[in-house]
Design a protein around this nucleic acid. Structure first.
Lengths: 177, 177
DNA sequence: TTGACAAGACCGTCCAGCCGGTACAGTAAG
DNA sequence: CTTACTGTACCGGCTGGACGGTCTTGTCAA
């Protein structure tokens, strides 16, 4: 009973993220992902010949989604700076109560090198932000604060209230200018 | 109460942190820890009857060390605020190139609930900081930026240069007042 | 003697990767 | 149109190995 062959990859990727989020990063097994995606283990291994490839796919789709969202934000709303687009995007990402990237912990456990592309991406983004502003101190504070927000969301650590998060975002936007 | 021959518990805890840092969080097995600590598997299980207890021990020692260091900083150098003590302590912690808490990833993979005490601790610290200042916006920015710094160190993501980190710290201290 | 381990065999479980199938789809000759 | 062939997409059982945890036996210092 097969229907959408082409979407299998994305379905599997989404299923993997779901499993990691709901059952915990330690429960991200091939069988769990396959079952969640409505695919057999063989079908999963057909799309991703190894678990490492699956992790790599997760990283790549995460990065491309993020970049797409950032680009959209940075261009759509007029002459917004990349930094403020990044702030708003991150704020929205962190709005969702459940961390959507728990799979990162699985990836790190598998092999810390899986995060290398993410590090490179962040480095690139930071360089881009540096080229946009002349007040390095403010940029550093903003950038790190966003990093902290994302980290707290990732660790599912809800220290901030709704009001506090809003205040934080507006403070950051003010610092960003 | 008999004194053990050597302080095996601490040796084991340190060995576990070393294994997670050097071999990766996914390689944190009981055998690896035992071998690293110069202890047999039986000896390890004698001190920590289960892997969960070992993780718990890691968390507890991390938290007590951190609190002790924070208290020392906050009291020794005159009437420094807790926030600036926290900033400086975190900056020093992040000075070290290698993340010292990679075991956290192992703990999360094992069971996300292991981080509950850490979340509680952070929440408590944040409340304490809120009681110390009247400018919530600045506190939020500072606190999150520190969180970001710690997160980057944990993920071994060296986006900032030495100079940038120093500038960041001084900016944060200025914001903290 | 006893408490604090050392040493390691052993078992149950879990899981990644492999492999032999199977159900189509497209093509193309007859 | 039919039959035969071919490649794609997927199924699911299997296995080898790693790992956590238990248990037994031995050792040595206090």
């Amino acid at each position: 009973m097969r229907v959408p062959r082409a979407n299998s990859r994305e379905k599997i990727l989404a299923a993997a993220a779901d499993v990691a989020r709901e059952a915990g990063p330690g429960s991200l097994s091939l069988e769990a992902v396959a079952s969640r995606a409505g695919v057999s283990k063989g079908g999963l291994l057909y799309n991703f010949p190894t678990k490492a490839k699956l992790m790599q796919g997760l990283v790549e789709s995460y990065l491309s989604d993020f970049q797409k969202a950032l680009e959209t934000r940075a261009t759509e709303a007029g002459h917004e700076s990349v930094l403020s687009a990044y702030i708003k995007l991150s704020a929205d990402d962190c709005e969702r109560p459940k961390p959507s990237a728990s799979w990162m912990f699985s990836a790190i456990a598998e092999d810390p090198d899986f995060l290398t592309p993410i590090k490179a991406f962040k480095h690139q983004l930071f360089e881009r932000l540096k080229g946009e502003t002349d007040d390095l101190g403010s940029l550093l504070v903003c950038y790190l604060a966003i990093e902290g927000m994302r980290s707290m969301n990732l660790f599912d650590s809800d220290v901030l209230s709704e009001d506090e998060r809003r205040l934080l975002v507006s403070s950051l936007l003010k610092i960003a200018g």
